[in-house]
Design a protein around this nucleic acid. Sequence first.
RNA 1: UGCCCGAUGGUGUAAUGGUAGCACACGGCCCUUUGGAGGCCAGAGUCUAGGUUCGAGUCCUAGUCGGGCAACCA
Length: 573
Amino acid sequence: MTSTEKPEAAPDLETGDFIRQIVAEDLQAGKHNNIRTRFPPEPNGYLHIGHAKSICLNFGIAAETKGRCHLRFDDTNPESESEEYVRAIKEDVRWLGFDWGKHLYYASDYFEQMYECAVKLIRDGNAYVCDLTPEQFKPYRGVPTRPGKQSPHRERGIQENLDLFQRMRAGEFPDGAYVLRAKIDMASPNLHLRDPALYRIKRAHHHRTGDRWCIYPTYDFAHGLEDSFEGITHSLCTLEFEVHRPLYDWLLDALEVYHPRQIEFSRLNLSYTVMSKRKLLQLVEEKRVAGWDDPRIPTLAGLRRRGYTPTSIRRFCRRIGVTKFDGVTDMALLEHTLRDELNQTAPRVMAVLDPVKLVIDNYPENQPEIMSAINNPEDPGAGTRDIPFGRELYIERDDFMESAPSKFRRLTPGREVRLRYAYIVECTGCEKDADGVVHTVHCRYDPATRGGTAPDGRKVRGTIHWVPASEAVKAPVRLYDRLFLCPDPNDVSEGGSFLDHLNPHSLESVTAYIEPGLRNAAAGDRYQFERRGYFFVDPLDSQPGTPVFNRIAPLRDPWSAKKAAGDRRRGER
RNA sequence: UGCCCGAUGGUGUAAUGGUAGCACACGGCCCUUUGGAGGCCAGAGUCUAGGUUCGAGUCCUAGUCGGGCAACCA
């Protein structure tokens, strides 16, 4: 329960979302003295930013009320769960900035207690052992518009139920031979109340309990009990569990145990990506992406690898709010939140991603000089740094145009631009290879403009970045773009797949020229490459002295946005 | 055609019976040694129909549209 930043940690219960308001009311009414929430992931996949919303909500409320939030693994289905996921989930929650302290729990720790609860249910005539397989039970359950009918085993005697259930546990029956059902109402309009399964026989090796059990509780039976055992006050979950709430309540009432309140909110949906565990797993397994930490997918591991900060994700989760409306949040908001933070904190450097040589024809040979550059205009305390300058430089290819429109504020013959922190230069022309591709641009500099200011006060519209040709350092840079081409990849036509919407250019790898000082960038550092975007020194692929950069997000760029829009209008690509 | 839930600008949200506000996105302008940042301006919203009320985005009724529910998944 950390989250130490002031704007986030301030109690926000009065003006908060509907859940925080309920919590505040319960506190005020004296219903609870200490708020207890929980984040209950099933360890069968990696956490994504949708989980971050839940984590921030649960840990956030606990922090704001000085209560506590439990991290609880809901490991009731051993078939798809594993220790690797447990490890990764803990790492992600910690990275996000939250601390469960000593309150780490596992549903599997409660298996014995849960078994006792099941026995009580049977004793009280609230549960029975049923022989029907899922397929056989289906017709009994009925359909939404028609009531179901009673299982032939519904009126089995209590003693027989007790005996059967005990033998289920003892391993006397094969998988699926019997199931323990709640005895509720086969005519209920809520399907979840038509004698739902509580325990199933499943000989699967559990990552924590090994082979001690061959029966496992279902989510519906287990979850409320976990909440009850832990004294959870507010059990927050997503909308799809709304129809389960009557069952949650029924179980806790039937068992006569402490009864937390379940409240549902809408899960996070983000445009231009997919969030379901199934689809993320598919992307990973089919190697459409490099792994669970591929910087293009919205897993926390992926966002971390991309370079997103925990702070920006927490702030994002705060800004999207919490409601019951099932909408789609624009990916642009996430990017904005990241830029908003890094604009304040990231040191500026110059790096040329698509280089072309610039020769200053009237600049003396062999007379390099040193230019002083500001590290962060938003943070005067960040100081300055020195960058070597010379006659030959690299600049961005798209900062030169042989014949340019009047709005183009960069290099084009006959016009002046400023080389950032260096001199004002006037473009004189270019050289091309046999294919007509520009390889060298020529210009002349004004020696009176050292540092970039003109003594005569003349205005220069454009400023471009550069690196010295002789001392620039080559560095691999990965330019990430959205993984999908359309806002809603799940919207597929008949027979289609979300994979059809994959963006074939979601990753472009280039070799950039970076300013020499950047050679020593440390893994995990974040920079703003001026005029280009925010970049992260990849912690896995970088070596001391040879950094590898991931683009976290490009800078806002009205010029190229307008240009792209113009191209689209003209039907170009 | 059963039950549950939802609906406020393009998007996400606020207003808790009393002036529909904020942010993102988009457009324009200003400023700028990052076409970044910043500043200013604009457009754009209470799903529909009834009802209650001095007054309804808010309460009631009906409808429309959207989502969820028929695993021994969670």
